[in-house]
Simulated assay, not measured.
Amino acid sequence: MKKRIIGIMGAMPEEIEGVVSLLNNCTSSSMGKRTYFSGQINGIDTVVVFSRWGKVAAATTVTTLIHEFKITELWFTGVAGAIDPDLKIGDVVVGKRLIQHDMDARPLMNQHEIPLLNKTYFESDASLLDMASKSVATIFKNSSLNSAIDAEDLNRFSITKPQLFIGDIASGDQFFSSNEQKQNLNNQLPDVLCVEMEGAAVAQVCYEYAIPFCIIRTISDAADANSHLDFPSFVKKIASKYATEIIKDIYSQF
């Protein structure tokens, strides 16, 4: 049986800091302008890395994890902009299906279809999806975020009763900062819950190498004209704590 080695990626440096602190016997190595942190969490070999922004950067990072570190599964934590109007800042979306919203090779093939793969969506591993969903539900139910995050910061972003959503996530090399972008995406892909810049690229690489994966996204903004205003602060004060608490609970299930 192949040895279990878990890869954890974060889209922002702040998002992996807390996860790195969970590693025992932590060592680091540099490769391709990235620092990979290796160690164990609950006795399981784990590699944690900041992916950098965008599809190419994320695809490069996960490919390195597969080839150099021999990971057997991949978890990705990060932030996303809300597309579905029911989503609020502080909610969490666990991706059931991932799609690249900026892939368009028409008229050679259908919009959003990945060339040569005959696929439009990449589905998360069912068992990892279930674990992630249980972990998010647990930390929300137990209000463990209240002990990890200052009440002042929760109040600042109006986070009172965050909710778990499971569904489609769209990825593309765009930061959404206008209502027009948001509406255009919603018109094309009405089932998409949120938008980000890495998940579907990571999903494609994992699919091609048969690596189970799961994408977990914390809603940081409404993907509109105000998206950029509190983004850095949200990542540092909120999203980084979410990532650490979710990963801790996931490992408690192993």
Rank of each mutant, 00 (worst) to 15 (best):
P212H: 06
V205F: 10
Q174A: 12
E208G: 00
I238V: 09
N187L: 14
F176P: 00
A239H: 05
F231N: 06
L189V: 14
D230A: 10
S171N: 02
D173Y: 05
I216C: 11
D230Q: 14
I169D: 00
G172E: 07
Q188A: 14
E198W: 01
P212I: 03
Q183V: 06
D191Y: 11
E196G: 09
D191T: 15
K237S: 06
N187V: 13
M197C: 04
L229A: 06
L185M: 15
L229T: 10
E198D: 08
I215C: 14
V205D: 06
E208F: 04
A223S: 13
I215M: 15
K236S: 10
D224W: 04
Q183G: 00
F213Q: 02
S177M: 11
A201M: 01
F231M: 12
Y209T: 02
F176R: 01
E180L: 12
E180T: 13
L164M: 02
N184L: 14
P232D: 07
D168P: 05
F213L: 01
I211F: 10
N184S: 11
P232T: 08
N179S: 15
Q188W: 05
S233K: 15
S233Q: 13
I219R: 08
Q181G: 08
D191K: 13
F176V: 15
N186P: 00
M197K: 03
A225G: 11
K182P: 01
V195E: 02
A170F: 04
Q204G: 05
A223H: 14
A200Q: 06
G199C: 11
E208V: 07
Q188F: 06
Q183H: 04
V202S: 03
P190N: 13
I211L: 12
I216V: 11
N179T: 14
L185H: 03
A239V: 04
D168Y: 03
K236M: 01
F165S: 08
I169Q: 04
Q181F: 05
K237A: 10
Q183L: 11
C214P: 03
V202Q: 06
F165I: 03
I219G: 01
Y209I: 07
V195D: 03
E198G: 04
L189Q: 03
F231H: 07
H228Q: 14
D221F: 06
N179Y: 08
C214T: 08
I216D: 06
P190R: 11
S240Y: 02
A225P: 03
A222H: 11
I238L: 07
Q181A: 09
G167W: 00
I211D: 09
F231D: 08
I238N: 04
F176M: 14
F175P: 05
P190V: 07
F176Y: 14
Q181L: 06
L164C: 04
F231Q: 09
N187W: 04
G199H: 07
G172L: 02
S233C: 05
F165H: 12
Q174F: 10
I166S: 02
I215N: 13
Q174N: 07
D191F: 07
A223G: 12
E208M: 13
L229D: 11
Y209A: 13
C206K: 03
D221T: 10
D168T: 15
F213V: 04
S178T: 13
I238S: 02
I219N: 00
L164W: 00
D224E: 09
I166Q: 09
P190D: 14
I219H: 09
P232H: 00
P232R: 05
A200C: 12
P190G: 10
F234R: 05
K236T: 02
S171K: 01
V195H: 08
L185P: 01
N179Q: 10
C214Q: 05
N184F: 11
